[in-house]
Amino acid sequence: MAIAPAKLSDPVVSAFVAAVNAHDRDAFLALLTPDATMSDDGTDRDLHEWIDREIFDSGGHMDVQSESEGGRRLVADYRNDTWGEMRTAWRFTVQGDRISRFETGQA
């Protein structure tokens, strides 16, 4: 049973998931620090290129299945038009009310 974004423990991570699922690139970017970084399957990627390809240009959607570490670590069924659906792990580094880094990969 998926956890609704509004029910996630960390409000910044909750807003991240909500922005992904609403395909709201502006809201998503507003949640990131200016120097935010990310990795996919252990390899650092160009954040803007990756989010366009994997989230916003391909209809990305997260169904969160579990959370830990105060809501800063998620396991989600992630789907997009490119890859279909897969079980993914997400880890967030939050500074104040913004995300400075997120890491994702297959779970």
Results as ranks from 00 to 15, higher is better:
T82P: 04
I3W: 04
A19G: 01
R53C: 02
V12P: 00
R101I: 04
D24Q: 04
S39A: 15
K7M: 15
D24S: 05
D40N: 15
Y78H: 06
R53Y: 10
V75E: 11
D24N: 12
E69M: 14
T33R: 08
T43C: 01
A18Q: 14
P34M: 08
A36H: 06
R25M: 06
D44K: 09
L31G: 00
S9N: 10
R73K: 10
I3P: 04
M38I: 03
W90L: 05
G59M: 09
A18V: 13
K7C: 11
H23K: 09
N80Y: 08
R73M: 02
R87L: 15
G84Q: 01
S66A: 15
L32K: 09
F102N: 06
D77Y: 05
W83S: 03
G105A: 07
L32I: 14
A22K: 07
S68V: 09
E103K: 10
A89Q: 11
D81H: 12
A4Q: 11
A6L: 10
V13P: 00
H48Y: 00
G60R: 00
A19E: 02
R98N: 02
S68P: 08
S68Q: 12
A22T: 05
D63F: 01
E67I: 08
V13M: 00
E49L: 14
A18W: 11
G60V: 04
H61A: 01
H61I: 03
L74V: 12
S14H: 03
Y78Q: 02
V12I: 12
A30T: 01
S58M: 13
K7N: 15
Q106A: 11
R87E: 15
F92C: 05
T43N: 02
S9V: 06
D40A: 14
G42T: 04
T82Y: 13
A36W: 07
S66M: 07
T93V: 12
R91I: 14
L32Y: 10
M38D: 00
W50N: 03
T104V: 15
A15D: 07
D26L: 12
F28G: 00
G70S: 09
L32V: 14
P5V: 05
S9M: 06
A76I: 09
A22M: 03
T88K: 13
A2W: 07
V75I: 14
S14K: 04
A76G: 08
L31V: 05
R25I: 10
F16Q: 00
L8F: 14
S66F: 05
L47V: 04
L8I: 14
V17E: 06
